[in-house]
Structure formats: structure tokens, C-alpha cells
Simulated assay, not measured.
Amino acid sequence: MIGKLYIPALVFAASLQAQTALYNTGNLRIHEGGQMGFHTDLINDGSFDENLGLVGFYSNGSRTVDGIFPPSFFDVEFYTENGTLLNTTANVANTANFITGDVLTPRSQPTITLNFTDNGDASGASDISKVDGYASITNQQNFIFPVGDSEQLRPLVLNSEGINTLAKAAYFYEDPNSPSTFTAFDTNSKPSRLGDISTTEFWRLEGSVPSTVQLSWNERSNIRALSDDVSEIVVVGFNKLTRQWESLGGPASVGDLMQGVAVSASFVPDNYEALTFGAFAEPRDYLDLENYFVSPNGDGINDFLDIPELALSPNNHMQIYNREGLKVFEQSNYTNEFNGFSNQNNFVVGRDKGLPSGVYFYIVSLDDLGLEFQGFLYLAND
């Protein structure tokens, strides 16, 4: 369905590569409520940046977005079996809905991104549909970058201390000792307090605002090669100045050797060329609490997460993550508030029905006692 369009100079033409494409040299606009589906490639050499409707890219093969000027979409969806290739940056003002097929950007050209502007967000990212390359944000503070490689979604969760004028991220399923688009990040270059550094994968994050990141691992990450104690796993960064890996701090990681979450302390992303997982050479002092069962069905039994030890430290901080590493709950001075619902803006799927049943990780700091704890909880939210 095509809504109200204002197109003073729009022609269909063949590109220099003899590919059929919609070639915009004028002023293309989709008004509120309008919809436009691209069943051909887009070459944007005109104005396509005042949209309020929906743009979709559809193909049993692939689609390409090219041109002199970056198109700016309000809502956009991707349903392309072999992906949508961006040869120019594309902006998203509201929602990018990932259905089937990746959005591909060239890792050798990090200036080309799927860029989420002020209120832009991603929905539906999964192993079969995500950004395979660089995603970026402008004028946003916190964001979940829906990045990965051709096989898996490997998101990076950014929480910044202020608004990012520009921040961008990409995932690389590569050995950082021999990356495809960078000078080598020698995993043997590190201080003695660090043990092994991952040679399986890394992320690239650019940004000038002090931030924390959340990275998650899965079976493919081979965390077992670093340590058999997940509490020793830490986010590490390759420092641009010292040319060595260093710990980026943060609380004890949670999970098991197959899946888990690591959270960093605050750092400036632009000071580091790559981020990945590392292990401490010596054990850290972190304590485990019990694993808990939460079933918020109103029967008065396990309706909320109750950790009796928190009574010893009224000044505490609770964080809960799902198995993909997304923060779903956070509370300072926690007193049994978690009852299966998210209080985070970055987790909106089924918000009114509560979080899906399954295993979650928690990290809690007892600030009065100077202690940190970690553990699992199982949520039965049926």
C-alpha cells in the first residue's frame, strides 16, 4: 500500500551495474499513515528525510540502498531473505523492525551504519535478522545495539553517563590477533593480573561519553577456554595508548560456561579499540547466594524475589539480566520489588504480561558491607 507521497522528481531507472532500482533525484516523502514497500533497490540522490510512515524492504533475495544522500526513515522493516545491503548510511527516527534477513554494512567502512536517531529503536532482532556490521546512535544515552555476524545476534548494551552525540558498535566473530579490518590486538599484551583473553570474538565500540557495557556469551564464545569459574570473567578492552588489554572492571559476571553476562565499570569507549572477554589471573572475592524461584501467581508463595540477606544492608543495588544479557530490572535499596515485570525501557516485548518464564541472572551489591553477590533465579510467569 502506498500512502500520500510527494514526489516531484522520481524516476525508475537502471543503475550503472544494470540493476533495476528506484532512483530518487527529487523530494520523496511518506506522510503519517503512509506505507511504501521497496521490491527493488533504492538509489537516493535526492531528499528522502521527512518521513512519518512505514518503509519496507522485501525480497526473496537481497536489496541494496545506495546514493549520495542517506535516506531517513520513520518506521522501517526488513524482510529480505539474503539481507539488505547499505552502501550509504540509513537513519531510523522511530522503529526498525527486523523480520528476516540482516542489514549488512561494510566493516571496512565504519562510517556507513544503520543509524538510530534521537528516539530510534530496534525491534525483533534475532539470529535471523540483525545488523551484520555497524549500527550507530545519535543523541541517545542508552541503547541495545542489535549487532552480530551472519550466524548470530551478539548485542552490545550501552549505558552512558550522558547523551551520545554519536556512538557506534559492531561485532566480529574473529580472533583479535588477526582481525580482518584492524591492526592486530595482541592477546598476550596484558598486565600480569589478567589471565587469558578471548581469541574467539570481539566488539568494536566508539563513543566519547563515559559508559558501561553489558556483553553476553554463549556456547560459541568458548568461555571455558578462559576459566571454569564464570565469576572470574571480565570485560576487557584493548587500550589505544598502551597497546595492551586491560580489565574494564565491573561486578562479578553471572551465568554458566554455556551462557552468561558480563558488565563493565564506567570507561570511555574511544580510549579502546576492541572489547571482549578476559579472565583474572587470580580469584576475586565474590560470594554466591542461593538460586531462587519466583512465581508471581498471587498465591502468596514466591510471588516476588525475596533475598533475606539484603536486610543486613539497606543500601544495596539489585540488577537482573535475561540469558541474552539484557538488563530487565534494576533497583537501588531493593526490598522485594521484583515480581516478574521489567522496569527497564529497553525491554518492551510483552511488558504488560510480565517477563517470559525462564532462567535469569542477578547481581546485587551490599554497599553497607562492601560485598557483592551473584546468582540465578527461575521465573515461572504463567
Rank of each mutant, 00 (worst) to 15 (best):
D382L: 08
L371P: 03
S221I: 05
N339G: 15
V103H: 03
Q152A: 14
D368P: 03
Y334L: 01
L158Q: 09
V364P: 09
L5V: 15
G34V: 02
N94D: 06
P356Y: 00
R29V: 14
A184W: 11
T25I: 12
S266V: 14
T25P: 01
H39M: 11
L355H: 05
A125Y: 13
N345C: 00
A279V: 06
L194D: 11
S108H: 05
L248H: 07
G278W: 02
S266M: 06
E282T: 15
I363P: 04
A13Q: 14
D102L: 00
T84G: 03
N343P: 12
N91T: 01
D303C: 12
R63K: 14
G354K: 09
N82F: 13
F341E: 05
T200L: 00
E232P: 00
K168L: 13
R351Q: 07
V131K: 06
D127R: 02
K353Q: 14
A380E: 14
F341T: 11
M36P: 00
F202P: 08
L248N: 09
N333H: 11
I137V: 15
L312F: 09
D66P: 01
S136K: 05
L114S: 09
V11M: 12
S365Q: 09
S266G: 06
L205G: 03
F12S: 11
N343A: 07
I301T: 08
P210N: 10
L275D: 10
L248S: 10
M36V: 10
S150Y: 08
I163A: 06
G237Y: 08
L289I: 10
T199V: 13
G34S: 03
D45S: 06
S332I: 00
Q214A: 13
T111P: 01
A96Y: 04
V348S: 13
T165C: 02
G124W: 12
D196H: 00
E151H: 11
V263W: 03
G255R: 10
S59A: 14
P356M: 02
Q374Y: 12
I112C: 07
R220A: 13
I363H: 03
I7S: 12
M36S: 05
N87G: 03
Y362W: 05
F172S: 08
S123P: 00
R243C: 00
S198T: 07
R107K: 14
R63M: 11
S231K: 15
L16V: 12
L205I: 09
Q331S: 12
G56M: 03
S266K: 15
Y171A: 02
N94H: 07
F69E: 12
T199F: 00
T20F: 11
F145Q: 02
G101D: 02
D382W: 06
D368L: 07
D41A: 12
G340N: 08
Y171I: 07
I99W: 06
L371Q: 15
P296I: 02
N97M: 04
I99S: 05
Q140D: 06
N336H: 06
P314H: 05
F361Y: 15
